[in-house]
Nucleic acid binder design. Structure first.
Lengths: 200, 200
DNA sequence: TTTTATTGATTGATCAGTCAATCAAGAATA
DNA sequence: TATTCTTGATTGACTGATCAATCAATAAAA
């Protein structure tokens, strides 16, 4: 046997390099050669392990999704009450790992890529559905179903919007401010729904 | 003078073709030849009138921004009260013209392009600032400054988020639902701030 | 004729993907 | 132990396709 067991290491290095390269450039218009160089290997090796650029991109996306999923699981693990779960879901989206400029830039390019690639669109839907169902479930324990779904929808949209704004580095709010804004939306809506129910 | 006055017609046709082509493809990875063909002219003519691809793209973006600005002006013209102005600003963002799949797809690609192009980023900032200041101004007549800025921030983020989400949906264009969600956010927040001031 | 409009053909650059050839480390063999 | 296989790892060089940009040439209107 030759120098063995390189495959998982190389794949991981290439995926990390892809995130960095895409994130720095802010575009999927990165060459395989650029990614490979960032990973310290040849472009041919990237093709060897992934089969093609598209598959490398998809693998990169799956990796980001998986990371997000792991973060979410970890955050929910310690959250016992519904409101703690809501706070956890919001916090995960703005955690250091997820809110890093390169990560955000990469996500944004994937959103655009989803318009051309069915598989990319499918993967993004998985992420959106997971976030939504986690939020909606926790909210339904605090208010009626209809209101819960509405808040979940609004929360998701606001989070995505804060993401996109942060990617442009406008006067975009920092993570802490973004969290506060979203949490304020949820608590205000919950308070309003409590009041409307008390009035019945 | 020869066959004269073609320039503005051709430029407009090329810009319209660019919006259609970019919107349909969902990417800035469209060739000048594709845009030119969609406009019914040769690729060389596109270069002749715009000087290059980047300038054609920027002209297209300015056109979309201008259209949005005109829509906004028109909507605000008939709005006399602050709340009517808020409703108008929200409505403009989800008007038929702005919420058309191709337009949304084009906007999304520009957001990504902004990460590479300073001029694109600058143009997007102009749009964001205009929306924000219009909202913030109207809101400050209904609540305190700090709360007004917070609501304006949240509203802008939510609108952007609904945009990006709409771009990924296969069907179900729900402009009305999106408007309702954003308006609900504003009215709920305003009601809460009124209550908190009454409590003083 | 002069000026604008318009294009086909061409060029130079860039890239994804391919391939044949090397490298190196452990296994088999003598 | 020393030597020769075996095979995954790795790459440089090459190819075919694509595209932005250029240019010389033509058409047509004034």
């Amino acid at each position: 046997m030759p120098k063995v067991g390189m495959e998982p290491l190389r794949k991981r290095a290439l995926i990390d390099a892809a995130i960095r390269t895409i994130g720095e450039r802010g575009s999927l218009d990165v060459t395989v050669a650029q990614i490979a160089q960032e990973a310290g290997v040849s472009a041919a090796l990237a093709h060897h392990y992934f089969g093609g650029k598209e598959q490398l991109i998809l693998a990169t996306m799956r990796h980001l999704l998986n990371e997000l999923g792991q973060d979410l699981l970890g955050a929910l693990h310690n959250a016992r009450t519904p409101s703690a779960r809501i706070v956890a879901v919001i916090a995960v989206n703005f955690s250091a790992a997820q809110f890093a400029p390169q990560t955000i830039a990469a996500w944004l390019t994937f959103y655009v890529h989803a318009q051309q690639s069915d598989e990319t669109r499918r993967l993004l839907r998985v992420y959106a559905r997971r976030m939504h169902s986690n939020l909606a479930y926790a909210l339904q324990q605090l208010t009626d179903r209809e209101t819960a779904l509405q808040i979940a929808e609004g929360t998701g949209a606001m989070i995505d919007g804060l993401y996109i704004r942060h990617a442009l580095r406008n006067g975009a709010p920092e993570a802490a401010k973004a969290i506060a804004l979203v949490e304020d939306y949820v608590t205000t809506k919950l308070a309003a729904s409590e009041r409307s129910r008390a009035a019945l």
